[in-house]
């Protein structure tokens, strides 16, 4: 279970929000709302431990995340704006590296299967620089299929640059994760239909 206690976020010298209390329990899906520049991405990065909160704390299973950093990061999958793709490596190599760097065991067969499910079987061994924007995003998303064991998924605009079929497929994947007791926290500008009841976290309510 992920909780925040009176979290505040400072960007530059501007306080974006403060006093944010919320929690995410197993099986729940939360969508962070708020106009651009309200600190949605900052909030996600803060929850992951990439940004230190200006005030307040983030708890995982009741303990502050800095204290149990390793356990928390073992339970977390974060996919940010940047797809973390190196142009000189193929999608397969990028995916294998991402999984290994995250400390998971990796099997090439599983990576191949994940790329196939996301619809990149044909591009598997091409250099990533030839991929389109949507395809690049999909390579990042392929990690979802290899991260079922990580309960907490934090996804920043996962639906960006995806076509309609891919959006539906991704929504189904997120639903399945929640159905198995996982937690999903995401931002998106699109209205996507989920079968999991979607909770909203509106940053305007805590904005400064």
């Amino acid at each position: 279970m992920l909780e925040t206690r009176s979290l505040a976020c400072l960007r530059g010298d501007r306080l974006l929000f403060r006093g944010l209390d919320f929690s995410l329990a197993p099986g729940e899906m939360v969508r962070v709302l708020g106009p651009n520049g309200m600190g949605k991405t900052s909030l996600l990065r803060m929850l992951c431990g990439l940004v230190a909160p200006e005030a307040g704390e983030v708890l995982w299973g009741g303990t502050p995340v800095q204290r149990e950093r390793e356990d928390f990061h073992r339970a977390l999958l974060y996919l940010g704006h940047a797809a973390a793709l190196n142009d000189l490596l193929s999608p397969l190599e990028n995916l294998r590296f991402a999984v290994r760097a995250a400390g998971d065991a990796v099997e090439t067969a599983a990576c191949n299967a994940a790329l196939e499910r996301i619809g990149l079987a044909a591009q598997r061994d091409l250099p990533s620089r030839v991929l389109s924007q949507g395809q690049r995003r999909r390579v990042g998303l392929a990690r979802l299929f290899l991260s079922a064991a990580r309960p907490l998924w934090v996804l920043d605009e996962p639906f960006n640059a995806l076509d309609i079929d891919a959006v539906a497929g991704l929504a189904a994947t997120l639903d399945a994760h929640c159905a198995q007791g996982g937690m999903v926290l995401l931002t998106t500008h699109q209205d996507v239909a989920f079968s999991t009841p979607l909770r909203h976290l509106d940053l305007r309510s805590v904005a400064c």
Binding site: L50, E70, Y78, A83, A84, N86, A101, G103
Partner: peptide, 22 residues
């Protein structure tokens, strides 16, 4: 430089393994 721009650095920082190692 490259890892910083393309987001790999972010992912590496989220690795549960000790940062100094990588």
């Amino acid at each position: 430089g490259q890892d910083f721009t393309d987001g790999t650095l972010e992912q590496l920082l989220l690795s549960p393994e000790p940062t100094v190692l990588w």
